[in-house]
Amino acid sequence: MQITITARNLEITEPLKRYAEEKIARLQKFVNQITSVHIILSVEKHRQIAEVTLHVREHTIRGEESSADLYSAIDLVADKIERQILRYKEKIVDHSGRGLGRSAELAESEEPTPAESESFPEDGPRIVRTKRFAMKPLSPDEAAVHMGLLGHTFFVFRNAQTQEVNVLYRRRDGDYGLIEPAG
């Protein structure tokens, strides 16, 4: 497992680095196919923030927590990732035989396009980031699993039944909504 630690607005001390690596390395007891981990530690005013992005096979699990103390933020995000891994393993057992292995590879790449700066006038909204990712066909249930693992409020995927691009989103009441193209 390759662990990368990035610092924003702070200097990483050796004890802090060791603590973060040990906390994240213990997640291997829950799932041993972790290929890489990216930890981002940052300070914003009075908040200490720890973000973790974990790559397990073709899945991406992400968590972010903040606290007044960076060590407790690392603890909180490690616990959050652990809960997500356990949920992920539960879903795999629930969907066994339905082929969760067909899931989308979230090989995201940020590629600025020349049209970004020309899209809107100077004083209006701007496109500041573009993401591209491979979309393998998923059922809406599988898309919900991926959305939960990523911690996002929406998820774009190709519907395995209709082969159309759909958007799954989390509603304020906690349920999900599905947007499908008409006609």
Rank of each mutant, 00 (worst) to 15 (best):
R8M: 02
N9W: 01
T13N: 06
Y19E: 00
E22N: 09
K23I: 09
K23S: 05
A25E: 15
R26C: 01
R26G: 03
L27Y: 07
L27A: 03
L27N: 04
Q28I: 09
K29S: 07
V31E: 14
N32S: 12
Q33K: 15
Q33D: 15
Q33H: 14
V37G: 02
A50G: 07
E51L: 08
H59M: 07
R62T: 04
E64Y: 05
E64G: 01
E64R: 13
D69G: 01
L70A: 10
Y71P: 03
S72F: 15
A73M: 13
A73P: 12
I74A: 07
V77M: 10
V77C: 10
L86W: 00
Y88R: 10
K89E: 14
I92P: 00
V93E: 10
L100E: 04
R102H: 12
R102N: 08
S103N: 07
A104H: 05
S109A: 15
P112E: 13
A115Y: 04
P125Q: 00
P125M: 05
P125F: 09
P125T: 03
M135H: 05
P137D: 12
S139T: 11
E142R: 00
E142D: 06
A143K: 05
M147V: 08
L150I: 09
L150C: 08
G151N: 10
F154E: 05
F154V: 09
F154G: 02
V156S: 01
F157N: 01
R158A: 08
L168M: 06
Y169G: 06
R170G: 05
G174V: 02
D175A: 15
Y176Q: 06
A182F: 14
A182V: 14
